[in-house]
Design a binder for these strands. Sequence first.
DNA 1: TTGTAAGCGTTATCAT
DNA 2: ATGATAACGCTTACAA
Lengths: 347, 347
Amino acid sequence: MRVTIKEIARELGLSHSTVSRVLNDRQSAMVSEATKDRIVSAAKSMGYRPNRIAQALKGARSGLIGVFMPESQEYFFSEVLFHLRQFVEEAGYELIPFSCSPLNVEERWLKLLRWDLEGVLVFDYLLFADGLGQALLQHRGFVPPIVGLFNPSSQLEDFVALDFAPAMGQLLDHIVDGGARSIGYAAVPGSFQSAEQRYSCFQRFMIAHGLPQVRIDVVGGSTLSESARLSTADLLAAGEGLPEAIFCQNDEIALGVYKALRDAGIEIPRDVMIAGCDNVPYMAYLDTPLTTLSLPVEEACRIACMALHQRITEPEQPHVRRMMEATVVTRASTSRSIRYEDSAVPV
Amino acid sequence: MRVTIKEIARELGLSHSTVSRVLNDRQSAMVSEATKDRIVSAAKSMGYRPNRIAQALKGARSGLIGVFMPESQEYFFSEVLFHLRQFVEEAGYELIPFSCSPLNVEERWLKLLRWDLEGVLVFDYLLFADGLGQALLQHRGFVPPIVGLFNPSSQLEDFVALDFAPAMGQLLDHIVDGGARSIGYAAVPGSFQSAEQRYSCFQRFMIAHGLPQVRIDVVGGSTLSESARLSTADLLAAGEGLPEAIFCQNDEIALGVYKALRDAGIEIPRDVMIAGCDNVPYMAYLDTPLTTLSLPVEEACRIACMALHQRITEPEQPHVRRMMEATVVTRASTSRSIRYEDSAVPV
DNA sequence: TTGTAAGCGTTATCAT
DNA sequence: ATGATAACGCTTACAA
């Protein structure tokens, strides 16, 4: 059996409240040194460990923070999870991730809410897809503080999101400067809002510059990279000619496009330039390193965790609606003349 | 405030036990249809959600399973976490990850034990480094069922681990068949047991075949790939000559080695063959796709979760000490003649 | 300085 | 068919 404070109390002939006092160091000031010592050493020798479940039930603090996230293997999500865990644990909470697919969002969200979490971090483009989020948040009953992640048009009161517009502009300028006229946009059709923001940036830029744009739909395949490789191979087989540059919704897609082109003997960036998004570290090690948009993921996670912690401890603080900017990491895949070694961006 | 069964009871002029009965569908057989309906609809309209913390405190089941894991950004760990979460959630639990660094293993382990988890999945080479694990498990007090992950020499009663020996043998045969004589082993010095198993396989093979071996220590740098790239570049600068093939402890290291060689104008596999370990999917998309050892991660996670679930529900079952075999994924980075498209292994 | 008792939200065993 | 009550392990007024 588990060792409880009652056990210790019984063993020592004390009451369990005295034991609790000492072990929590709450009102232990007024406990005699003698009994204090007895209790501490008994606790140690008996292997006492406070029961967080009981503490959570009693007190206001459960010490748990939830993450509501898509069930995805993309590098981006594991990177985010890594940093969130780091910051949440630093702040003395434990992080409990709830993943969901488009099919069970509501079920999982309700499951999450059962754990009386102190706060929740939400990839909220997911929650708000199809207005589902509105419906969910209007579920009656208490909902803990929520901080939204990475949705620039978040409906939530607190959120941290990314602005791709400036970086997209710089990147497209750089690509056009390099001599490309027609530019393709490779993406999974029907994507989420944060991705659509990138697409509308792209469209506006192309129209403003009077350049021809091509949409490359990434479909089929088992993984994102594989989908992209196959879709690009199909495009090549169709023989309709390629755009002179391709911007990809993320680095996984860029990798598949890259591979399909290389396998077809197409030179990058000479024949076609490629750029991705997310700055997946592996992409810097390709024979032709990939230009990409870099997201301040760690910093965003830090801010999100701080915001949540603050909302938990001081509920009346003003909202946190923080936009952060992506930056361009120019590498060889878009650089026809100079070969940039790494992340230096000549503006 | 949160809606509780007491609230509902008060609202309806019933006792909270009746409400509980109905909402749990336990002894609700003997509750009149009328009140049953009233309770269910009241619960719905008031937004009642059962409090898992209270349920956990009362009953035996907390519904929580912990993962004790290193604080690492390697792809392998996020892959494992992804699959564990999937299977654990399928079985109706929630997964709560506890990451730790070598510096705070004990502290984190004790934190974990406070959550009266129903079971724990442990990367136990971590727990058992320096005999710490033995010490930890001998902490007095109740310890929940534990299943060890990926440590072939696990001290735990239940574990799932990987056997690299057959795959290592096949891979080295394949490399030697391809014409390489001297082979390097690139690794971070002072690694864990499961990595050391690979190294001793390598050593035995090389000695048995009378071939010269080179140890390449991967040190410095901020990420594993970067360490490997720098270490390899140093080796090249030293001008001592390279081995004809290099086996790398994992794919991240292989990627860094690959990049250093390519940047130096060295052809792969013509001048030097490279192989890695872990089958990180990105590595299949390099200009010269990387040969690697593929681990049955998903299957191993499935078995580990099943084993834990079984140990929880039927504690008296026999131990699960399951070894699974890695397989060779032969790709172009070790294939001087034929270019293998993907995973086909000609034995 | 220490003990008693109430209560957190449940479930479960009694009564009624 | 329903209600009263105890219990899970803990914290915390309040009493002694």
